[in-house]
Design a protein around this nucleic acid. Structure first.
Length: 274
DNA sequence: CGGGCGGCCTGGAGGC
DNA sequence: TGCCTCCAGGCCGCCC
């Protein structure tokens, strides 16, 4: 569920709430995540260290710890990190509790268990198999139409699927890929390599706009997503196509359609996207 | 090799 | 009420 705006929203809350805190305890209640947890190793690696700051790369949260260690957390589809009091009622599917002292803790819960939580050295970030090949951050310098044009050259797959490739651009998932294509007026089935450079300019700008607006709204909450203080996002109110099959397009009054690409739903407006 | 698809899990929604 | 099917925001491995 969480894409860049949601993960960044969580990061900002965590930075405010837990940066500078020391980890004083760890409880692994269920190690069966996408990458199975090793409770003893995790305990040895985390307890006693402090959280220096909280960063993000693509959809990964990077909790930088003292001693140049990094706790990496991916929320998968339904994962959430929550700052809680130790005596707060445990949400179902709470798999990990990280005690921070003073009665507070950080909880990782994830019903579907598609998430990941692992610990590495800071120096390993660049070469880590899951982190090393991630593409540029779309809201930072280094991401522009020129890069996209270059990456898309000779690529025949649909542009929607191209945008979901994390090596091309970091943090873009199904919702924001659909929304950016709509705003740019690009048909999701268009072959990536056959989009004119001027259209890439428009699409690049649309991607940045939609991600920025979503971030400003604290992300999109369709069902589960909440930030680390339990707050919902509001960008679901501004979605133009995602989840709106059969509804009227706000721009052309045509009907939003849903198709399946690479096994995933794509929503678009046949009138506005060519 | 590029690209598509199934699988990993659970839960909620909707049909009957 | 209950049972069944479908669907979900991510990612990876396997296959052609």
């Amino acid at each position: 569920m969480p894409e860049l705006p949601e993960v960044e929203t969580v990061r900002r809350v965590l930075e405010k709430r837990i940066a500078g805190r020391r980890i004083v305890g760890l409880e692994v209640r269920d190690p069966r995540l996408r990458t199975p947890l090793d409770p003893a190793a995790l305990h040895a690696a985390l307890v006693g260290r402090s959280i220096v700051h909280v960063a993000r790369r693509s959809k990964y949260l990077l909790l930088h710890l003292s001693g140049d260690r990094v706790l990496v957390v991916h929320l998968g589809m339904t994962g959430n990190l929550r700052v809680a009091r130790g005596d707060d009622v445990l949400e179902p599917h709470t798999h990990v509790r990280i005690a921070l002292g003073g009665g507070e803790e950080l909880r990782y819960a994830d019903p579907r268990r598609f998430g990941m939580l692992f610990e590495i050295g800071q120096a390993e970030i660049a070469s880590h198999p899951r982190l090393g090949s991630i593409g540029p951050e779309p809201l930072e310098p280094g991401f522009d139409a020129q890069w996209l044009v270059q990456r898309a050259a000779l690529v025949r797959k649909p542009i929607k699927n191209f945008l979901l490739d994390g090596r091309v651009v970091a943090g873009v998932g199904n919702i924001y890929a659909c929304e950016a294509l709509y705003r740019a007026g690009v048909h999701p089935r268009r072959a990536a390599g056959r989009l004119a450079a001027e259209r890439w300019q428009v699409l690049c700008a649309a991607l940045r706009t939609v991600l920025s607006l979503a971030l400003r709204d604290g992300g999109t909450t369709l069902q589960d997503y909440r930030d680390a203080e339990g707050r919902s996002g509001a960008f679901q109110l501004r979605l133009r196509v995602y989840g709106r099959e059969g509804h009227r397009c706000r721009r052309c009054r045509g009907t939003i359609r849903r198709i399946v690409q690479a096994g995933r739903s794509t929503f678009y407006c046949p009138g506005c996207q060519r």
